[in-house]
Design a protein around this nucleic acid. Structure first.
Length: 152
DNA sequence: GCCAACGTTGGC
DNA sequence: GCCAACGTTGGC
């Protein structure tokens, strides 16, 4: 079982929006970066996913979700009417993937990026090392440190 | 809104 | 296959 972190802009789709989807969950779509896609493809149902709010007043880890589907081709990539349409993707050779995520919990306190940067035990997080990667792995140890910070 | 970081595209 | 131009992400 693996841990991940997924970024989302709360103005677009927030943790609350995911919570509103309930157990049906929501496809995590629109990922158009190969490294992030490779992480999506490596996900299995039951994996835990930190939800991180980006491009907002206080960028922070705000809660967690769970992977509830196998990875599958992103249908939006094949839909010319979608903002995520990619003419280079095809049904035969889908270029982009999604998984469904379901809300699990809002953490007691958000863990701001600022605090993550100040925490030595989190210095190796992919979130910090590759600022533009929207889906990244998280170790068990990193997860535990973040959870403890949220509970403080 | 600015701009640094960095991924992608396309000419050669 | 290099690399300049360009586009996007995301913190501030």
């Amino acid at each position: 079982m693996a841990n991940w972190l997924a970024k989302t802009e709360p103005d677009e789709f927030s943790l609350d929006d995911l919570a509103a989807c309930g157990e049906a969950g929501e496809p995590w779509n629109g990922i158009r970066n190969y490294q992030a896609r490779n992480h999506l493809r490596a996900m299995v149902p039951g994996d835990r996913v930190l939800i991180y709010h980006s491009a907002c007043a206080e960028p922070a880890v705000v809660g967690e979700a769970e992977v509830i589907s196998e990875p599958y081709p992103d249908p939006d990539a094949l839909n010319p009417d979608s903002r995520y349409f990619d003419p280079k993707s095809s049904a035969d050779e889908p270029r982009w993937a999604v998984v469904k995520l379901a809300f699990r919990k809002r953490w007691p306190k958000p863990v701001p990026l600022k605090q993550i940067k100040q925490t030595e035990a989190l210095a190796d997080m992919a979130l910090l090392r590759q600022s533009r990667l929207s889906v990244s792995p998280v170790s068990d140890a990193q997860w535990a440190v973040l959870e403890a910070l949220s509970a403080q």
